[in-house]
Amino acid sequence: MLNQSQLAIMLNLQDKMNVKVNPDWLNAGYSYLRAAMIESVEAIEHHGWKWWKAQKLDLPQVQMELVDIWHFALSHILIEHKGSIKDASAQIEQALTSAHTTVAFDGNSFDLYQQSLVENLELMAGLCVAKRFDIKLFTRIVEQAEMTSQILFEQYVGKNVLNFFRQDHGYKTGTYKKIWDGREDNEHLVDIMQALDSNLDNYADKLYEMLEQQYPS
């Protein structure tokens, strides 16, 4: 289960990234749950659902979509709490420790532990359309996608830091070098993440610092 320190790091990173896009993002009216709904549907596509053709579950891609969904979910929760990281963190903590195993939607009750991964993804998409996000449902989906909370945290922070790094080094102007030493930046990031202790309080800062050290000047 995600701990207080991890939640604080992720919420702070999400706020900073959103401010980078728009300093007034809290009042901009962006539909973060619409974005989460689209990502949920994309996860279903990567899972496979078509009964009329052979399909193969692409679990790494499903996991990537879940990391993206978490970005949008954190943004939505921060808006609900007017940008208060403390209050947003408290809500998430409460939801994570909740004992509920069912979700009510459209007059029906869905048991999160009886449903398949694709069925829970579909339920999450439906809730997002109704402007609702159920954290317990999301964590159940993460579990079904063979991710731990630690992996979710590391993948989330890694992607967020890389996005910051790209923006700070000319991504918008086209001067950023996505490939150096014959490898893409996300490959370099994976190496750094594997060598770094994710329990460090300054984990995100260290990731950025080590990317800076490896990036060609």
Rank of each mutant, 00 (worst) to 15 (best):
G48C: 01
W49D: 00
W49A: 05
K50W: 08
W51Q: 01
W51A: 09
W51C: 10
W51G: 12
W52H: 05
A54M: 04
A54E: 12
Q55W: 08
Q55Y: 12
K56C: 06
D58Q: 09
L59G: 04
L59M: 15
P60D: 07
Q61V: 04
V62C: 07
Q63N: 09
Q63K: 09
Q63H: 06
M64E: 15
V67K: 11
I69H: 11
W70K: 02
H71W: 11
H71E: 13
H71M: 08
H71F: 15
F72P: 11
F72W: 14
A73H: 03
L74E: 07
L74Q: 09
H76E: 13
I77E: 10
I77P: 04
I79F: 06
E80I: 04
H81G: 06
H81Y: 14
H81F: 14
K82W: 02
G83M: 12
I85F: 00
I85Q: 02
K86D: 15
A88M: 03
Q91A: 15
Q91W: 03
Q91V: 11
Q91S: 15
I92S: 09
E93K: 13
Q94A: 14
A95M: 05
T97K: 14
T97R: 14
S98L: 04
A99P: 00
A99V: 05
A99G: 02
A99C: 03
H100W: 01
H100T: 11
T101V: 10
T101E: 10
T102G: 00
V103L: 03
A104P: 00
A104H: 06
F105I: 06
F105M: 10
D106W: 01
G107C: 10
N108L: 12
S109L: 12
S109F: 08
D111A: 13
L112K: 01
L112V: 01
Y113C: 07
Y113S: 06
Y113H: 10
Q114G: 12
Q115P: 00
Q115K: 11
L117P: 07
L117I: 13
L117G: 04
V118R: 07
E119A: 15
E119D: 14
E119F: 06
L121F: 03
L121S: 02
E122D: 14
L123S: 06
A125L: 12
A125E: 07
G126Q: 14
L127W: 01
V129D: 12
V129P: 01
A130E: 15
A130P: 10
A130N: 15
K131A: 12
K131E: 09
K131F: 05
R132E: 13
D134G: 07
D134E: 14
I135M: 11
I135C: 07
I135A: 05
I135G: 03
L137F: 08
L137C: 10
L137H: 06
L137S: 09
R140Y: 02
R140L: 04
V142G: 02
V142T: 10
V142F: 01
E143W: 05
E143R: 05
E143F: 15
A145Q: 02
A145M: 04
M147E: 09
T148S: 15
T148N: 05
T148G: 09
Q150K: 11
I151D: 14
L152I: 13
L152H: 03
F153G: 02
F153K: 04
Q155N: 09
Q155W: 02
Y156D: 00
V157R: 03
V157S: 01
K159C: 01
N160L: 03
N160P: 00
V161E: 05
V161Y: 06
N163I: 06
